[in-house]
Amino acid sequence: MVRRMKTNRTNFRLPLVPYSLWIILFVIAPIGLIVYYSFFDLGGNFTLSNYSNFFTSVYLQLTVSSFWYAFLITFFSLLIAYPTAYFLTKLKHKQLWLLLIIIPSWINLLLKTYAFIGLMGLYGPINAALEAFGIGKHQILFTDFSFVFVSVYIFIPFMILPIFNALDKLNPALIDASRDLGANAWTTFTRVIWPLTLNGVKSGIQVVFIPALSLFMITRLIAGNRVITLGTAIEQQFLVTQNWGMGSTIAVFLILFMVVILLLTTANERGMAGSGKKR
């Protein structure tokens, strides 16, 4: 008996070895290095000045503007993705349609971005169309609009997928029941469909908001550096000023922000599920 239990325990621990190795080598070690570097100045001396430097107006302003744009991108992605996902589930060949929406995300990000430079240029097809309609040429590239538009375009598939899965798993009988009990379409949506797909929405928000916080290439190519995010600052610290300490410090804050967002979205989720069960 005793012997058997022992083997059981080793059996239980052994499967963890590859995973923990993986996590130590490729997750914990890199994050540890970032934290480690963030405590050194240019001369390689131990310092906390990088952290105090982060709380100066330049970086705080950067943080606020990063959050604002990430919020806009997430908001518009959700606004478009939710109805799209909803109608997708109603279609006959929904998996095929879903695939068609996912395919653009297989194309390299840089290529898509360059394509938009051509499309939105002064002599590009969008302006040609505007002119044909008598609206006239407009500067589209290098505006807040172009930045949010292109980012939303890039992130939409990632928002649609989890919402589609949540909607697809929704038991249609629940909607019928809600209707039978006299709820109109709006009440059915707000009281039944939305709460039951909230988890999909939350994972959608996570996969869009978090990367949107640190976008950097699109800020230059599409927004002409009129939009500056924490990602831009990190790139500059590492590649131009070679100040790895400051670059790492910004990265540490970015990680902290992401942890907070993850906690916020998952904590609510658990609370919801718990209270749901009790009732």
Binding site: V58, N225, R226, I228, Q237, V240, T241
Partner: peptide
């Protein structure tokens, strides 16, 4: 160089 870049960042923002 770091100071130049911080000013540049400020200008861009």
């Amino acid at each position: 160089l770091g100071f130049y870049n911080e000013l540049f960042l400020e200008f861009k923002m």
